[in-house]
Each structure stands twice: as C-alpha cells, then as structure tokens.
C-alpha cells in the first residue's frame, strides 16, 4: 500500500468517526460499563489504575498544557488529598464523603501557598519551587507523627455508597471511571470557557494578554488551584481504594510519571492526554521484562517526543 492510499484511508476512517461521533461515543461507553461483567480482577485493576492516571494527568494538563506552567511536584497535591482522607477517617472517624470537601480545601490552600508567591516570577522558578515543595511534603509526611511516619497510614475506612461498602475492585473500576469522565467533562468545559481562552492567550503571548486586560497572575493561580483540586480528589479515592498509604507513593518519580503522561499525549489536548495516561499504565504491564528500565525507556521517549514531535502523539488540530 502506498503512503497516499494509506493517508486517504486514514482520513476516510477519521471522517467516518467524525460523522458518527455520538453513536461511537455511546458504544464506547457501553463497552466500558460492560467490561466488569466479563473481565477478571487483573484487567479491572489495570483499567482502574488507568482511569486513575487519566484523572491525575488531566489535572496536571490544566497546569502544564493549558496555562503552560511546569509543575514538578504534582504528587504533593495528590498526597494532600490522600493524607487528608487517611488522617480524618482513620484518626478522627470522619465519614469518607465528608473528607472530600476538606481535601479540596487543603489542596486549594496548598496551591495558593506555593503558587501565590512564585507565579509572579519566571516560569522556570516555579518548576524548581514545585519540585522543592513536592519533596517537603514527602519528607514532612515521613517525619510527622500524625501521618504515621515512614510506614504511613493503615486501616483507612472504605466508603459506603447507598448502603454498599465499596470493597471490590469492580466498585473502584466504576468509581474511577466516573471520576475520569467527570475530569474529561470538566477539562473540556474549562478549555472552552472564558478562563480557558485566557490561559491559551497567556501561554501564547503573556504581554499581549496582559495588555488586553487579563490578570496573568490570577489566571495562572486559578490553573494551579484547579489542577491541585483534581489531584486532591483523586488522592481521596486513592486512599479509600488502597486503605493504606505511605510517603513513598508520593515521590518525585510519581510527579514525573504524571508529567510524562501529559507530554506523551500532547500537552493541552484532552484525547491525547487520556491516551498518554493509558500508555503510562499499560506499557509496563505489556512489557513486564524491562522492569527497572521502565523509566529509562520513558525518559528516552520523552526526549524524542520533545525533539521530533513536541505536539505529542495525537495529531494536532489547530482551529
């Protein structure tokens, strides 16, 4: 097959997808909802994990992709959510669902504390400050009494949903699928909102944006806070799913992994980021053999993506 026919066939398929978009979407959703009835626990675990990373990557995508800010300590916000739920349910007997608003509040607070002062500075300072912040949160979690020290927290309560205790992997498959869909919807709405356009403007030309009356510090801070809240909520459910959390979940490599998902798929594009998150989880599952070389392979791919295809693996569509 020559390249031309390949291209025309691909466009043909893409055209088909375009015309039947709604039908395909419904079909796809039906498949996703139907999966737990047929799949085994291993598949469900991997898929739940995929949805989970979709949420985190979409959250980071708001910061990196939409607002163009490099955040290297994203796992810290994830930790804030997980530890809030963990501490409140296991030590103070809170109901799981009540911890979510608290975690959102703490994530917002953390976002303001870190973003507030540094967003006025050069963007690369933000990268290193977030890196430092990520480490501070991890070290604090390891050394404080209330977070259970290096061994972390155990015995975090499972949440109840209309009387059913969520304790099966299939429950969490649906929980994370629902959250991921919510995150996709929220990202989509944000991207096409007034705020989303402001982010794009500031990312492309900061000075021009400011001259047009956009408060650049404020809108960057919004991006930062919204990203933090995404991770905070994901953290709450992560704690509930695992019932045990330890500081070593929230290392620098965790932040890097999430960033990789965003970069692979193409920063700022929702389908791309979803695919990137999927690649992140599925790749090590498929290639079991490489084990510890995983991050090395990822890093090389990341370098190649930046050098040869900075728009990511998903085809770019500039409107």
């Amino acid at each position: 097959m020559t390249t031309d026919t390949l291209v025309s066939r691909t466009t043909g398929i893409l055209g088909l997808i375009e015309t039947h978009q709604k039908t395909l979407l419904v079909l796809f959703l039906a498949i996703l909802i139907g999966i737990p009835a047929y799949a085994n626990n291993y598949v469900l675990e991997v898929l739940a994990n995929t949805w989970f990373y979709v949420i985190l990557c979409l959250g980071l995508n708001i910061v990196v992709g939409y607002a163009g800010l490099l955040d290297l300590g994203y796992a810290a916000f994830f930790a804030v959510g997980a530890y809030t739920t963990g501490i409140l349910t296991s030590r103070f007997g809170f109901n799981f669902w009540l911890t979510i608003p608290v975690a959102m509040a703490f994530a917002t607070l953390a976002g303001v504390i870190i973003g507030g002062p540094t967003l006025r500075l050069r963007s690369d300072y933000l990268a290193i400050v977030t890196l430092g912040f990520g480490e501070i949160v991890r070290i604090a979690a390891r050394n404080l009494k209330i977070t259970g020290g290096a061994s972390g927290l155990i015995g975090i309560d499972r949440p109840h949903f209309f009387g059913t205790e969520l304790n099966q992997i299939s429950h969490y498959y649906f929980v994370f699928l629902a959250l991921a869909l919510l995150a996709i919807f929220a990202s989509y709405r944000l991207q096409h909102s007034r705020l989303g356009r402001a982010w794009q403007y500031v990312r492309e030309d900061e000075d021009a944006a400011e001259a047009m009356g956009i408060n650049r510090v404020a809108i960057k801070l919004y991006a930062y806070i919204i990203g933090a809240v995404f991770a905070g909520i994901a953290g709450c459910f992560y704690a509930a799913k695992m019932t045990a959390i330890s500081p070593e979940t929230f290392t620098f490599s965790q932040s890097i992994l999430i960033l990789l998902g965003v970069v692979f798929g193409g920063m700022g594009k929702i389908p791309g980021v979803v695919c990137g998150a999927g690649a992140l989880v599925l790749f090590p599952e498929v290639f079991r053999g490489i084990g510890s070389m995983r991050l090395l392979v990822f890093a090389v791919v990341m370098l190649l993506v930046m050098l040869y295809r900075p728009q990511g693996i998903w085809p770019a569509q500039k409107s």
Binding site: L70, F298, M306
Partner: peptide
C-alpha cells in the same frame, strides 16, 4: 522552541542519566 519545551527536554536528559 518555547520555554516549556526546553525545560521538559532538560528534565528528560536528567531522567536518562539517572536511570
């Protein structure tokens, strides 16, 4: 390239050396 791209490139180099 945009500032963000070169920062991510630098990060990739760091990860490659480390791993």
């Amino acid at each position: 390239a945009p500032r963000l791209s070169i920062l991510i490139t630098a990060l990739a180099v760091s990860l490659i050396l480390y791993n």
